[in-house]
Design a protein around this nucleic acid. Structure first.
Lengths: 216, 216, 216, 216
DNA sequence: AATGAATGAGGATTCATTCAT
DNA sequence: GATGAATGAATCCTCATTCAT
């Protein structure tokens, strides 16, 4: 966590050593790249791709605008990098789940819960992905799609396994996967649109319906 | 249908009589307004609000750019008018259903089917709404939101009735409505992303899961 | 007065006969032209030539925009017509003076007083002329200039006579005329920029200095 | 002088070295700002604020349009900066006078002469100020007004002193100041509208009348 | 390598003028 | 003759990208 800027705000904003901080910073390239990605996540998540201002990203990342372009050839590439990173983080958390639990039904349940938790903990990630999916729909054949597909595919596989082992009914696995993603999305959205925090209940309630729907 | 430009592309693009077509056209205002809305639907559906170019809309509508502004005070208002019109058409088709059928379960089933059919028949409508809903998520408190809420509310009511009359289990009606919208969306999306046309099966398959999920 | 719209607001706004007034009015062309000029004076005086909106003029004149163009070939011509009309009215009032009094000194005094009175009574006239003179300065060789010159010439002649008959010193008549115009303008400006009404005193005070300056 | 672009037209329009001139220029920011101000003075002086085209200013300044906006946030701000600069230059020249001479009568005389000389030497300055003052009259409460007031106030003070020390009669100082400004303006105008150069005579002739008018 | 000033294509909006009714 | 809807040239401003330092 910490340095990935996903669950904690970037801490590189404060630099407390005695030097003037308007002197050109000497940072390892990776750290720079990270700061840019963090800033980009923040800015893209506010108003989507079009609204985002490269200037603002640069300022937030505390680098020159030219530097942004040294690391990413265009605003769009930067955007895709942000989306990709979010997916990577999500995937990482899901893989932990997948490694720990046994039955497909349990994996599914835990996976969705983790998925929902990840996004409710990182609203900015949710927002870039919302946009990302939008852009996919409007201009399909985008790289973003790839990430979605990956996620979807592993879900499909999982459900297929669930059917095989008798956990689930004979539903269309691909469709069921799609529906599960929707279900998760629905919970996240609900969470952001309401005042009181009933996250766990919502997850249970949603999965209750879903599981009953595909369960035997 | 036909002239409303929703299910059939505007056929006024071709004008085969021998007259010059850069002469000022004389059309009834309603027809003009319609052409503008059609063109706007087309253009907005391609790349969302920001990407759309008023010039392109005007050209497609075969009117001067100034004319667009005579009918709608700004690009944004035009956009909202497009979204509103799409919702009106959808609502109209749903009301027909609602008037015809009896039990909440039947209404729900038929309504979702109609919903899905409407959007798969009118991909551009789907696309503007996708954008609309996503723009809402990024900048909430938009008028678009209102239309969504209306739809959602009537669904919620319907489900509440279904619970009352014993059609459905004691689920959270609001959440169930949300989930149903997601389910429908999922089917539409699936339809656009795959090659073979299995629309009716998909609807059935989706509703099967959903109904089982909330059914008794 | 009355119908010229200079000292009294146009009274054609109210039409009290029993007919619907959204029926196309049948007015003698002269009256129409007058209404347009009145409206134009009002609108041009508010923000100058550039700021004025032909639409607004048409609306105020209660005619269609096309009608404005039937009477005046362009916005600019309309503007010049307005300026010209103001000058005509001014000239008319000055000629009355000139016909009544005897000595150049007296004519001058009375003329300036009348000049000042005319503009303080008709602020909109003052404002179009202010603009008119501006435009002259920026784009000389304008027709407006002609009106100014006419006024100036008669002043010059008057002063020349005054010198001849011993009323005034041997000053440069043309310059003295120019200076008198400035003096008058100064008083008008002062009147519009201050609260209390000391018009007559101001006229006297200004002429006192001026007369002393050119007097023997 | 020289480089301030006030008394000599910018000579950077011609660049005779062999390099391509559509390559990005590297100039000290101050010089750039100066070129923009110079170009703006030129363009604004031609047709006033409204007529001026930012594109034209940019071209004349040999910078990109965006560069203009980097230095001044809007066309209006640029305009005000131009007006302000003109006033600053005028004030600077007047302060030299004020420091050198003794009696109010002498200061007045020398000041007006300098004032007139400044503007006859810098016709474009005169023209922007003419516009500025007139725009003030049409839309008062503008910043430009401030500069005028400053000038007027110091004149008023001066005349008050002149009265106190017996140089002038007991005239209304504020009015006398106003009148002096008009007088000076009159001379400048006359200079621009006539062929032969009789500037010094005109100044003398004008001040002769004015001084006699307010003198004892 | 990092910077940020410079650039100019692009886009929303206005409004004088035209012209079919 | 009168009308006002239609038009599109004109214009301000933004912002992704480049490049000299």
């Amino acid at each position: 966590m910490g340095t990935n800027g996903l669950t904690s705000p970037s801490n590189s904003i404060m630099m407390s050593n005695g030097e003037h901080n308007n002197r050109r910073k000497v940072l390892p390239p990776d750290e720079r790249r990270e700061m840019i990605l963090d800033a980009a996540l923040e800015v893209f998540s506010k108003g989507g791709f079009q609204d985002a201002d490269v200037d603002e990203i640069a300022q937030l990342a505390q680098v020159g605008k030219g530097t942004v372009y040294r690391y990413y050839p265009s605003k769009r590439e930067l955007y895709l990098a942000v989306v990709e990173r979010v997916f990577d983080h999500l995937q990482a958390r899901l893989e932990v789940i997948q490694g720990q639990t046994q039955s497909p039904r349990e994996v599914l349940h835990a996976g969705v819960a983790e998925h929902v938790r990840f996004f409710t903990e990182n609203p900015r990630c949710w927002r870039v992905l919302v946009v990302g999916r939008l852009e996919d729909r409007l201009n399909p054949c985008r790289d973003t799609m790839l990430a979605h597909r990956t996620l979807l595919d592993s879900l499909t596989t999982l459900i297929r396994e669930g059917i095989a082992c008798g956990d689930f009914r004979e539903v269309d696995p691909e469709y069921a996967a799609f529906a599960l993603m929707s279900t998760a999305a629905t919970v996240v959205e609900k969470h952001f649109h309401q005042d009181k925090d009933t996250l766990q209940e919502d997850i249970n309630s949603a999965l209750d319906i879903y599981m009953r729907g595909i369960g035997k």
